[in-house]
Nucleic acid binder design. Structure first.
Lengths: 334, 334
DNA sequence: CTGTTAGCGCCTTCAC
DNA sequence: GTGAAGGCGCTAACAG
């Protein structure tokens, strides 16, 4: 590994000149520049990032925390982030928290150790206070989530409104016994979706039956298991609103296994519109989020925070879409 | 942001002592230690990683390159990697290449800039020569892939043998017109799987029909599109061996859409055994790789390379499993 | 336009 | 058991 001194010596210039040529942000005579470039070439020189980062007190890196790598929803969000990061010369440091608060803290520690310039949290597990405190010291943006009562920059859809809309769709189809498969309740957007579900029931005067509300972990498996439980109820639900598509897919599996049919016996609505939701049978009615835009916007926001460019609005709420496919049909009672 | 000097001053010791207390690898009097720890606490001090990395000439970070974030196959591999990395105090730097050679080179550049101590490539796109050259300078391990004729450390299943086994399964069911949906042919493991397919045909004296061989990009969509093409052939295949489960799922969709049935009209075998392969109807017959172990072993290997611990064997080939579900059935011709 | 100099924050000798 | 000093490789300020 050669360093800047080696290059300087070979090119017969000072290290400062080498640095200038490489940064390309300062006038250097063409002749000198070429000599430096040749030296760089022949030594196969790559500047040491650690040294540069230390000196410049920036890393051009943003940590992006994901709750779960295998959730295809995020891959599209990430694409949006990557595209703007690349354009601005930034790298993503993808952190997989596996839904574990400790893992989340690990990465936050890395941020404090200045291994990155900023942080994007998608579906945070740590508490509101911790987030608030961190946000005061560091460029931090919430993606997919909205932290009520704070001014923390975030970009998401209206999870409450979307859930209300999904539930209302089921109600409009004639359903009264509508179950809700929630995600982990310590996640804000899960509580939001649950609240949207409850709001819809209330507004239509449908009594809430707590036995119809179950919390899973966003996995196909948990959707499957919880639906089996729901189906074994004395008065089983005629519809299920799941907080994500995976759980909805698990629910479909359980309904089919019980020799019942979707949507005739049980209508199902998911959330996220992941690719497989069009393949599964019946195809899933679901809420579609502008995934790419969420990612793009979130990254634009952190980069602005990092560069101390004022952000016009701190809280961006993007429109969602209800995509109607076959998993709801028309309820017999209509 | 406070630094080590601030801590030293507050504790009334030298920076060397602070460093020793924090590293905890050198005798320091208990009394002094406590004073330092208190100072660290009250200043909320976090050591600057860039400075430490520069000084120690190591980052305790391994870059892991993934061709595609949304492929659930890798999430399990990553879990294996994360578990051993965490145990040894290392971080993963996940790099999503989106199947793009340029993106791959970007991350390799980061390695050369010493932003990480080692690299794990899963399904590399760059050429054999580049990999070989890099491997001479840096700790590098191939996961899921095997680079023939080299001594580069790698851990994978026998892709050729597995593909042969999958194809033989179809042949044993009586199929003679067996199509192959390959992945991108610049990926080694795709060529391997294709070769296994060809070997199986040859060994059973079945002529190769090039019109039955198509190359996709591992996506559901490409599996769907290519299968439509295959089904429109004058003499359409009675079976399809897809190089991964996603393409197999796309194939199932296309077959159903053509009002044909799986497995009666077209039998289908996938590869990877992703979670959804049990949900899809019919459930997919597929090859299962020991995903977690692959990840775990690959990480153990790079860490040993990094620490210059001699590795017993450079090339690890792990056993795969053929999982028989409903997508093959028994061919009518049997 | 180019060179000299002084750190960035940390760890690691080498003294004592 | 502790401190002083030097330097990892780079960039930025200041001269010239």
């Amino acid at each position: 590994m050669s360093n800047i001194k080696d290059v300087a010596k070979l090119a017969g210039v000072s290290t400062a000149t080498v640095s200038r040529v490489l940064a390309n942000n300062y006038p250097v005579a063409n002749k000198t520049k070429n000599r430096v470039l040749e030296a760089v070439q022949s030594l196969n020189y790559e500047p040491n990032r650690m040294a540069r980062n230390l000196r410049k007190r920036e890393t051009k890196t943003v940590i992006v925390l994901l709750p779960d790598l295998k959730n295809p929803f995020f891959s599209e969000v990430i694409r949006g982030m990557e595209d703007v990061a690349a354009r601005e010369g930034y790298h993503l440091f993808l952190g997989n928290t596996n839904n574990d608060v400790e893992r989340e803290r690990e990465y936050i520690k890395m941020l404090n150790e200045q291994m990155a310039d900023g942080l994007i949290l998608t579906t945070a597990r740590i508490g509101k206070d911790d987030i608030l405190q961190l946000s005061e010291k560091k460029p931090l943006v919430l993606a997919c989530e909205y932290l009520e009562g704070t001014d923390i920059p975030c970009v998401s859809i209206d999870n409450i409104g979307s859930a209300r809309r999904a539930t209302n769709h089921l109600i409009s189809l004639g359903h009264k016994r509508i179950a809700h498969l929630s995600g982990p309740i310590n996640v804000v957007l899960c509580r939001d979706r649950m609240n949207g579900y409850l709001q819809a029931l209330h507004s239509k005067g449908i009594p809430v039956d707590e036995s119809l509300m179950e919390a899973g972990d966003f996995s196909i498996d948990s959707g499957y298991l919880l639906t089996r439980k729901l189906l074994s109820l004395e008065r089983r639900p005629t519809a299920i609103f799941a907080a994500n598509d995976e759980m909805a897919i698990g629910a479909i599996k359980a309904v089919k296994e019980a020799k019942l049919s979707v949507p005739e016996d049980v209508a199902i609505v998911g959330f996220d519109n992941i690719p497989i939701s069009t393949i599964i049978e019946p195809a899933l009615t679901t809420i579609s989020q502008p995934k790419y835009i969420i990612g793009k916007t979130a990254m634009e926001m952190v980069l602005n925070l990092i560069k101390k460019v004022p952000i016009p609005r701190h809280q961006m709420v993007l429109p969602e879409e209800l995509i109607i496919r076959e998993s709801c049909g028309v309820h017999a009672a209509l």
